[in-house]
Every structure is written in structure tokens, then in C-alpha cells.
Amino acid sequence: MSDDLSKLFSQLRDQPIPQDRLDELTARLDLQIAEEAGDVGMRFASGRFRWHRVASIAASLLLAALISIPLSTYETAEPIAMHRFERTESFEALVPMGAVEAMALPEVSGIEFISSPGDAQTLDIEIGDARVLMIFDESIDL
């Protein structure tokens, strides 16, 4: 037995690994290398490659790309709030809004509520370039 720590544990260098574990490692490597080589090469070679899966993934990516085009256009369009503000100004220039004192109400994007002190209610809806103006007044007899 060694008389110091270093010499003592250096003896473990001579400890052999059992042959069956060495053989096991070689067998495991053989198997894994064969599996990895077979994953792509063997499928192509044997015609078992799953083309329908590749086609499905490609179609999904293409669809996602097509959808993203109008979305990205929409996102970079003129801000809705600013657009509506300009339209509202021109609308007020045309309509004598003095008779209708607008009250501040929460705005939902593209939809504007204008409340009058009387019974009439105006609903101004703007979607893209389209604008719908609705006036609700019980006194209007159509």
C-alpha cells in the first residue's frame, strides 16, 4: 500500500474495466451509428421517406406566409385614430354640429359614439376606407 495519498489513488489507474462493458460500449455505438445513418439514408434508399409529411409542413409554411402578407400590410397602414380624426373634422365642417354637443365617450377602434343632449343618438362606424353614419332619433318619422 502506498505511503502517500497520490501514490495510493494512482493505483486506480490500473483497474481494468470489465471486457463485457467494453464490448457493450462498442455494440451500443454500432447500433446508434447504424440508426443515425438509417434515419435519412435508408429512408431515401428504400423509398420509405415520408414525403407527405414534408409536403404537409411545406404547405403549412406557405399558408402562414400568405396570411402574413395582408397582416403585415394592415399593420403598416395609416393609424386608424388619426384617419378618423381627420374625417370627423371634415364631417363637422359639413354638418352643423353646434346643435349636437358631442360628449366624450370611450372610443372603440373604428367606432365613434356621439351623444346629443336631446334624444338623437349618432353612431359613426369606420372600417378601413368605409364609413357608416347612423343617427337614431325617435322624433324622426320615416
Binding site: Q11, P16, I17
Partner: peptide, 22 residues
């Protein structure tokens, strides 16, 4: 468990004990 079959009995005892200690 760790030593090859061909190792001598004395070597197995010493190295085995040493390995467990380490």
C-alpha cells in the same frame, strides 16, 4: 463489479477496497 475476471484475488481485494474508499 468493477474488476476484470483475470485480476488476481489480492489485487481485487486491494483495488476494490481502494475504489470504494475513493
Amino acid at each position: 463489479d468493477l474488476l476484470a475476471e483475470e485480476s488476481g484475488a489480492e489485487a481485487r481485494l486491494d483495488l476494490g477496497a481502494l475504489q470504494r474508499a475513493f
